[in-house]
Design a protein around this nucleic acid. Structure first.
Lengths: 137, 137
DNA sequence: TTCTTGACTTGGACTCTGTCCATTGTAGGA
DNA sequence: TCCTACAATGGACAGAGTCCAAGTCAAGAA
């Protein structure tokens, strides 16, 4: 993530303190924050940052392919900075915790041609649901 | 779906015209309506039915395991009456059409123990994304 | 059949998530 | 340093869903 800002600058992204702060907040492993959580954490570093800017910046990062949008429940979308490593998600039904996981094989190949109904299938999202150790203990 | 009402009555469900209409609207194959769409169609049969009742009834059907909630985009949840036959979804990125599909094998077994982080994994949802014949033509 | 009652429905207010837009501010090149 | 196009702001707005107090009614009891 540290070279993210460099990469974006190279792509003509204008660097502002707001964008820098949003990028910093999204740094890390197994990070799946909602826009609102990003706003809270960004505000801690840069109190004047507005909600609209957080939404704008997240949207741009998604368009640029640097962040993934994850919708594991019907509530707010979550933003996953782990965009350059293919993975799926494991979600705790108790507390909502999310882990990135890497299943074996390629789930795309599990859909036989006769189940594709003429679609050109391009991607697959897998969400495993279960109970995490803290919630089952 | 025709015996759904019988089954629910047997479970102590009080039968009302509103609930009957919502159940009727959800009948069929590859049905994935939003709550609002259910409300529109139910209103055609029973004009006085309220939005709140549609939400209540859908929520009850989901709790009872008779209908599945599907969140394929960040927008409104969709309701899938095909709850008694395990399946996954194939979604068109163009028009949003949804088909029920049955992948080979059990996607749950693709997640090795060392990728479960101590979770008790109970279910898996798979969403295939692609372009349908109408949209690619 | 009528009565009774607790479950169900209603509609409007409210919350949450996200978008839009006119105005103000500023990064970065000239 | 100055310009200006791009970015940030915040407040209004929209869509999806929940909540609640009051009114209604399904279905068992008499």
């Amino acid at each position: 993530m540290s070279d993210l800002l460099e990469r974006l600058r190279g792509r003509g992204w204008r660097m502002t303190s707001q964008r820098r702060v949003v990028a910093e907040v999204l740094d890390g492993e197994h990070v799946h924050l909602t826009a609102d959580e990003v706003h809270v954490r960004a505000s801690a570093k840069l109190p004047e940052i507005s909600r609209a800017t957080v939404y704008n910046t997240l949207g741009e990062l998604v368009s640029l392919g640097e962040v993934l949008e994850v919708a594991t429940d019907g509530r707010a979308k979550r933003y996953d900075p782990n965009a350059h490593q293919p993975h799926q998600h494991l979600v705790c039904s108790g507390c909502g915790a999310i882990r990135d996981v890497r299943p074996q094989g390629n789930p795309l190949s599990d859909l036989p041609a006769e189940e594709r109904y003429g679609f050109t299938v391009e991607a697959v999202e897998v969400t495993y649901r279960g109970v995490c150790p803290s919630c089952s203990g």
